[in-house]
């Protein structure tokens, strides 16, 4: 029997806008996934520790403050330090096109900008999981 995909939806940094994160959380839930939502203003340390304790398949982060170039790579660094290499990490929010290559080089598998249909994110997750669902 295939197990459930577990996703951590997290809001790093200081902006207080979680509408997008909640829409994604709801869409992933309706796609049959188990979504852990941790609320606003999380530090990279909190996010990575939560990913570790919850043993998630995916970390999906949303950021609208402009601090993505600092926070996303920091999360990736901590993920590596904790040997969470088999976790798919994706990001979303108001992120300029020019910043995306750098974030991908840091290990974020995909960046979804405003206007992305939720189905695109869902399909991406299903197609790019790093762990087997057996």
């Amino acid at each position: 029997m295939a197990r459930k995909i577990k996703v951590l939806v997290a809001k790093p940094g200081l902006d207080g806008h979680d509408r997008g994160a909640k829409v994604i959380a709801r869409a992933l839930r309706d796609a049959g996934m188990e979504v852990i939502y941790t609320g606003l203003r999380q530090t990279p340390e909190q996010i990575v520790q939560t990913a570790l304790q919850e043993d998630v398949d995916v970390v999906a982060m949303s950021i609208l403050s402009g601090a993505h170039n600092h926070l996303f790579p920091r999360v990736m660094e901590l993920m590596r330090q904790n040997k969470l290499d088999d976790v798919l990490v994706i990001g979303g929010g108001v992120i300029p096109e020019d910043d995306i290559p750098g974030l991908k080089a840091a290990g974020i598998a995909a960046i979804f900008t405003p206007g992305t249909p939720t189905s695109t994110t869902i399909e991406f997750i299903k197609a790019n999981l790093k762990r087997s669902l057996e």
Binding site: R29, D30, A31, M33, Y37, Q46
Partner: peptide
């Protein structure tokens, strides 16, 4: 759908680390 939103942790994030 069998999906779930697990939100209890929101209140406990002070202890995450």
């Amino acid at each position: 759908t069998g999906g779930a939103i697990l939100g209890d942790r929101i209140r406990m994030m002070n202890h995450a680390t």
